[in-house]
Nucleic acid binder design. Structure first.
Length: 159
DNA sequence: GCCAACGTTGGC
DNA sequence: GCCAACGTTGGC
């Protein structure tokens, strides 16, 4: 089993929006970055665990936990001319873009803010020192997280 | 709203 | 293949 962090802008799709989906499942469509695409297509599998992160908002934070309920499959929104995510490069015979489905596990009792993660990362031997999210200039919207990092974030949410 | 960092595009 | 211009991300 692997661990991931996925970013979303709460104005577009928040943890509460996920909670309102049927079966609390959503497809993670619209990722249009090749590095993230490769993860979605090749690495992320059913059963993997996800940190659900709110970005580009007042208080950026990990706000929930989710489970991958379906591994990588073509993002059909790219084929739909009417979709905001339409991309003429992609076609059903040779899809450029992929997505996964995730299911809400739980909303964290207490969000773990970016500021808190940064502070935690300054501590000696913290597993968060090399967390991708905290690297300068890192903007990858789907990123790997180690088990230790995942567990530490969960623990911080229980404080 | 500002702006640094990064990714993509396209001319040459 | 280089690189300038442009677009996007995302923290602050």
């Amino acid at each position: 089993m692997k661990y991931w962090l996925m970013k979303t802008e709460p104005n577009t799709f928040s943890i509460d929006d996920l909670a309102e989906q049927p079966e609390q499942i959503t497809c993670w469509e619209g990722v249009r970055n090749y590095q993230a695409r490769n993860l979605l297509r090749d690495e992320i599998e059913e059963g993997d665990q996800v940190l659900f992160y709110h970005s580009a908002c007042k208080t950026p934070a990990v706000v929930g936990l989710a489970t991958v309920s379906r591994g990588g499959y073509p993002d059909h929104h790219a084929f739909d001319k009417k979709s905001h995510y339409f991309d003429p490069k992609s076609n059903p015979d040779s899809p450029t873009w992929y997505m996964v489905d995730i299911k809400l596990n739980k909303k964290l009792e207490r969000p773990v803010t970016l500021a808190e993660l940064r502070e935690e990362a300054t501590k000696a031997r913290s597993p968060l020192v090399d967390m991708v999210l905290l690297q300068k200039g890192s903007r990858l919207s789907v990123q790997p997280v180690s088990k230790k990092q995942f567990d530490r974030v969960v623990k911080l949410s229980e404080k």
